[in-house]
């Protein structure tokens, strides 16, 4: 299929506020669990060094959509992709038959809904991505670990107990540890799957603040259940419903003057 590299299309409202430059973009991405169609020809652009938020009621396919990006579905039998996910600047379709999922996962990083640190030390948690990549040099790892922990605003809290178990930290700290683990390998795109849904408001605030800080260096795609959160932190928002993209646009515009009736109903709380 033809890949619209230099995107000629405009947003669903026809206003032409399409992001540029792009870090990635999905082109008519469909996804099947067995024979069940879960994503229906979803096309969303991901702007470089911006935060793009995916909102929608539960079961609308937003987590499924996110997990397509690092080919997580490949781990389970009976799943199938159609369409393309293109990563820039090399315009590579990461769903291509010839692309190894591991190669894709090396370029992206993911933070999950529930903090899932390994039951290893804080240090080993952050260093694991580097070890997987075959880095053995102790000094390089030390440096990267500190850097990642600083980026995740966790360094000051754990620098004296790097050998403590990652699972012994508090919930918010665990999630920041997972972010540090994801950042240690310098990912091009950071995927976050409802990263604050298991956290209290204070931990949530600290993670939101952290994301604002991170977007200067990393492109972020975040799934969130919480519309206020999307409105607070994202630059672009995609609203999904029943596996389809209903509307995409700049967050400010989408939340003030949604083009579609469905979007308006959802963000004003009339359903979902």
């Amino acid at each position: 299929m033809a890949l619209p590299v230099d995107s000629a299309y405009t947003d669903s409202a026809g206003r032409g506020d399409w992001p540029k430059p792009l870090k990635a973009e999905t082109c008519e991405l469909s996804f099947y669990y067995g024979t069940r169609l879960v994503l229906k020809r979803v096309s969303v652009p991901i702007a470089e060094c911006n935060i793009t938020a995916l909102i929608g009621p539960s079961g609308c396919g937003k987590s499924t959509f996110l997990r397509c990006f690092n080919r997580m579905h490949d781990l389970y039998p009976g799943t199938r992709y159609e369409g393309a996910i293109v990563l820039y600047p090399d315009s590579r379709n990461i769903l291509d038959r010839g692309v190894d999922p591991i190669e894709v996962r090396m370029r992206l990083a993911m933070v999950f809904q529930k903090p899932n640190p390994f039951p290893k030390s804080v240090y080993e948690n952050v260093a694991y991505g580097l070890r997987v990549r075959g880095i053995r040099d102790r000094r390089v790892i030390d440096e990267k670990v500190e850097q990642a922990l600083r980026s995740a605003a966790l360094w000051e809290e754990v620098k004296d107990r790097l050998s403590a178990l990652g699972t012994s930290l508090s919930g918010g700290q665990q999630q920041r540890l997972c972010i540090a683990r994801a950042l240690a390998t310098d990912p091009e795109l950071l995927l976050l799957d409802e990263p604050t849904s298991a956290l209290d408001p204070i931990a949530t605030a600290s993670i939101e603040e952290l994301l604002q800080d991170l977007k200067r260096r990393v492109t972020i795609l975040i799934v969130t259940h919480n519309m206020q959160q999307a409105a607070r932190i994202s630059d672009w928002t995609a609203f999904m419903y029943l596996g389809e993209l209903v509307e995409f646009g700049p967050t400010k515009r989408l939340f003030t003057t949604p083009a579609k009736k469905q979007t308006e109903d959802y963000i004003t709380g009339r359903f979902g």
């Binding site: 996962r105 997987v132 997972c178």
Partner: peptide
């Protein structure tokens, strides 16, 4: 999944 996501 955490390990796989890191490229393991």
């Amino acid at each position: 999944e955490a390990a796989f996501a890191l490229g393991a």
